[in-house]
C-alpha cells in the first residue's frame, strides 16, 4: 500500500486516502480532433515497467488532484507535484535521472 506526499496539503498520505486517476500528462482530444488523436487520448496508455507519471486524487484529504512519478516495478516514488502543469518539473526529472541514469523520457 503506497505512501504518497500530497504536494498541496503536505500530508504523507496512505493509499487508502487516495484515489488513482491513471496516466498523467495526457492531451485531451477536443471537438474536431482527428481519429488517431482521439484514439490516443481515449485508449492508448504507455503502461511502462519502470518510471511512470500518474494522477492521484487526495479524495479523503484535501480533495486536490496531484501527479506522482513512480517506478511501477519497485514502487519507488521519485516525487509528487502539482497536477496543474503540462510536464514533470525539473527537480522530479533530475531525481529520476539520479536514480535511473539510463531512463529516457518518452
Amino acid at each position: 500500500m503506497l505512501k504518497l506526499t500530497c504536494p498541496y496539503c503536505g500530508i504523507e498520505a496512505d493509499e487508502t486516502e487516495l484515489h488513482g486517476g491513471g496516466e498523467a500528462h495526457l492531451e485531451r482530444a477536443a471537438g474536431g480532433a482527428g481519429d488517431s488523436e482521439l484514439e490516443q487520448y481515449l485508449f492508448i496508455r504507455s503502461n511502462p515497467r519502470g518510471v511512470h507519471f500518474e494522477r492521484w486524487h487526495h479524495i479523503h484529504g484535501c480533495g486536490k488532484w496531484f501527479h506522482a512519478a513512480r517506478c511501477t516495478e519497485t514502487m519507488e516514488v521519485f516525487g509528487t507535484y502539482s497536477a496543474q502543469t503540462l510536464r514533470p518539473p525539473e527537480n522530479t526529472l533530475s531525481e529520476i535521472k539520479r536514480r535511473r541514469p539510463n531512463w529516457v523520457n518518452a
Binding site: 486517476g21 485531451r28 494522477r55 486524487h57 480533495g63 486536490k64 488532484w65 497536477a83 496543474q84
Partner: peptide, 13 residues
C-alpha cells in the same frame, strides 16, 4: 461534484 472538480483542477485550471 468530483467530476467537475477533476476537470477544473486538471484540465482547465
Amino acid at each position: 461534484h468530483g467530476w467537475m472538480e477533476e476537470w477544473l483542477q486538471t484540465e482547465w485550471w
